[in-house]
Nucleic acid binder design. Structure first.
Ligand code: MN
Ligand code: MN
Ligand code: MN
Ligand code: MN
Lengths: 138, 138
DNA sequence: CATAAAGTTTAGCCTTGGCTAAACTTATTA
DNA sequence: TAATAAGTTTAGCCAAGGCTAAACTTTATG
């Protein structure tokens, strides 16, 4: 039982804050990707993407609307707002940098896909910059 | 919007599974650490450690007891079971390897402490082994 | 163009992980 | 040792993120 790091409540509260926007980040990323690939996004697309029920997607989209990341009229397509688009690009870039970092390190592709899906939301911009540098010189 | 990785519902369901044991991992790690430092663990110690209320700790300890990771009698100290101890050691090792990995990479200590608190729960054993190798040769 | 199929929303349920306030137990100290 | 302080549990609340079943809307088809 060796512990070289030190722990503090602030670490946990930062982690909690990051977890609170995790779903938003995943959704705007997904919406951006699906829209890029097929031109529009509907409830059913997100169900397939995440593997959850239509009711779950519907409820979560309402939360994204309240956060002004998404716009949608009843029974219609789902669009990112300006803020949603910005968050999507930022999240996608971070996810991409982390994924590439893991593969450059030697992590098998399938494992890097899985691990990065969870890890991405907890990578600070400082850590991200270091990973970016590593990617560019390896 | 460049995406070099590929996404699948399995990535999200694995991530969900990992999130479901995140609290258990943090708690057994904390209990192990506090016990190591002061010989016993009480509700109030965990409140300070995590920065949450006594009611929250009490409720979460009940969940750990149901999972047979922890034993405790009313108003008394909190102990890890055999399984709890094993999970604590495993989680601590993973946390420690990741933390050291980030610092060796050049991430400032304070940032590595924060980022590793969230990332640790999403690092597969394959990725962990690669980080371990990196640590030993850098 | 009427009906059937596909897709979306609503209603109502559940667990997790937080909180405060109040009740209860244990520990301290006058 | 009786009163007070400190610590723990219980009760009851909330939001997030899941689910199924049923109602409703849109799209496709005979
Ligand atoms: Mn992502
Ligand atoms: Mn993700
Ligand atoms: Mn940890
Ligand atoms: Mn943690």
């Amino acid at each position: 039982m060796k512990i070289s790091r030190s722990s503090s409540p602030e670490n946990f509260s930062t982690t909690k804050t990051r977890k609170n926007i995790e779903l938003f980040e995943d959704y705007v990323e997904a919406i951006n990707e699906i829209n890029f690939n097929k031109g529009f996004v509907k409830n059913v697309d997100l169900c397939k993407y995440f593997g959850v029920s239509n009711a779950t997607v519907c409820k979560n989209i309402k939360r994204l609307i309240k956060e002004e990341l998404v716009e949608s009229e009843k029974y219609r397509s789902i669009f990112l707002t300006k803020a949603g688009k910005i968050l999507a690009e930022k999240s996608n870039t971070r996810h991409e940098v982390l994924y590439k970092f893991l593969t450059k390190l030697g992590v098998p592709i399938r494992i890097a896909e899985i691990d990065s899906e969870g890890m991405e939301h907890h990578v600070s911009k400082e850590t991200l910059n270091i990973m970016k540098k590593f990617n560019n010189s390896n």
